[in-house]
């Protein structure tokens, strides 16, 4: 049994656009979803997350079928580009909602939340409101919530797209660190080739509502690198 994520001929029509995804995403790896805007990257992610349901085809995760299950029943956490935190709740509560959506917390849970905040570099930020955080700090808090949820799959929808270049590098490092610690399966929508080079193991290319290719990062970069930038270390 394949223990990654399988989209088995999942088809969906939104408005006039038709999507038809068929691919396998390996467990324990970081897979980047690349492709031009409007190609269906986010739709693919929404199907995996359960925000959209396919009109035909099936979806499997860690060996079980999840085609019709609700988002909260799926073994995954989601981090969006923006608005990951409820602006009127403090950081601690935002993270804690990942453990208990009705805020029933044991002392042990509280310890885990503080621990997760420390691991993402937000020690002592629990009482802060999201409005007082920088863009990078907000995304760190979202990562802390994903950590406490202990789900095997992490979905990222352009998580660093609204951050500046330096911060993107540091957040990529944090993502890699957390990935090594938890050995989770990461699916990350991105349009940033440098980011793919930094963090991804594999790349799924989406074009025209279909999966055009699914390959190792090195192969993908080789195919799309221009001759001038094939030297090692540059992309």
């Amino acid at each position: 049994m394949f223990d990654g994520i399988v989209l088995d001929k999942t088809a969906l029509t939104l408005g006039t656009t038709h999507f038809d995804f068929d691919c396998r995403i390996e467990a324990g790896a970081i897979t980047a979803i690349a492709g031009p805007s409007g190609a269906g990257k986010s739709t693919l992610l929404n199907l995996v997350a359960g925000f959209e349901q396919p009109q035909s085809g099936r979806i499997f995760m860690t060996g079980t079928e999840q085609t019709l299950s609700r988002p909260s029943e799926r073994p995954l956490s989601v981090v969006f580009q923006d608005h990951n935190l409820f602006a009127h709740l403090d950081v601690f509560t935002n993270v804690a909602l990942g453990i208990s959506p009705s805020m029933r917390l044991s002392p042990h849970d509280r310890g885990r939340i503080e621990d997760a905040l420390t691991r993402v570099g937000l020690e002592g930020f629990g009482k802060r409101m999201p409005g007082s955080l920088s863009g990078g700090e907000k995304q760190r808090a979202a990562f802390a919530r994903a950590l406490v949820r202990r789900k095997p799959v992490l979905l990222l929808d352009e998580p660093f797209a609204s951050l500046d270049a330096d911060l993107r590098v540091r957040m990529s490092d944090l993502l890699l660190k957390l990935h090594r610690e938890t050995a989770n399966t990461v699916i990350m929508v991105t349009h940033d080739r440098e980011e793919i080079a930094r963090v991804a193991d594999r790349v799924v290319l989406v074009e025209g509502g279909k999966v055009a290719s699914s390959e190792a990062k090195a192969d993908y970069l080789l195919r799309f690198a221009s001759p001038a930038s094939t030297r090692p270390g540059t992309v």
């Binding site: 925000f51 909260s72 995954l76 969006f80 909602l97």
Partner: peptide, 15 residues
């Protein structure tokens, strides 16, 4: 995102 997030976190109507 708030509605997607609350669905993904499994929040019940009262939550």
């Amino acid at each position: 995102e708030y509605w997607l997030l609350s669905a993904s976190l499994g929040m019940k109507p009262f939550s």
